[in-house]
Amino acid sequence: MHKLDDNRAWLLIVPVFALVAFNAIIPLMTVVNYSVQDIFGPGQRAFIGVEWFREMLRDPTIQAAFIRQMVFSGLVLAIQIPLGIAIALLLPRSGWKSSLAIILIAIPLLVPFNVVGTIWQVYARPEIGLLGRAINAVGFDYNYTASPVAAWVTLLLMDTWHWTPLVILLAFAGLCSIPQPYYQAARIDGASRYAIFRYIELPKLKGVMTIAVLLRFMDSFMIYTEPFVVTGGGPGSSTTFLSIRLVNMAVGQFDLGPAAAFSLMYFLVILLFSYVFYTILKMNSRA
């Protein structure tokens, strides 16, 4: 019998298929199911097609949250990627100092998300927090519960503190993998420190930095816990990001249909952006 005609092969993929079905396909389909129905109560529902999707796209609070989310992710990448590379360049490449520095730098990564939020919520308070009092003492009027700018600064500082270490670790690993002869050849060629960075280190970092940009984009685009703990989306709705808006809708208002449609679009947007980033960075490294 020809290999392709042996139907028993299907049996062998059943376990994997069942596993994927239960942890991915069925939950996702539940969301899809909600997103195309209007649910009034148990047993009372109506199929309404893509109406929720249309409504979500037109919702001004979601549009505002989307723009806020884009700005936040853009700032996160613009701050953390260069900062991470810069710090990685300053680290010693070997010896006990290197190990110690890496351990200290990695600590924020080990802190649970809502603990990070709590730490900064207290740390940045204008009346009792060390950071909040210090900023006010220098003469700035800083109160993240009252001023949107202060709230944004606090969230960006917190996210930078929490996640720049990841960029540093990736950049450091990339730098450590550059063979010594590259530096030796550059010395013989009389290259300046800037030229070494521009023509040796930066090109060699491209691979790990692609990963760093993707991870930081996806994580920051999905951020929920820390702003929820620190600002709760305020003051007003100035730090209401997509996920906070979504949770308000799904859990707070119990609008399951619209929330399902929103979730699916949220998911597709992240998928799309990640794909675009990946393609652009891949193209650059091949061109």
């Binding site: 063979p179 002869p181 590259y182 030796q184 050849a185 013989i188 023509y199 040796i200 090109p203 060699k204």
Partner: peptide
Amino acid sequence: AQVFQFPVLYDT
């Protein structure tokens, strides 16, 4: 002029 065991180039 020094040539190393593994070729050293400026990739970009």
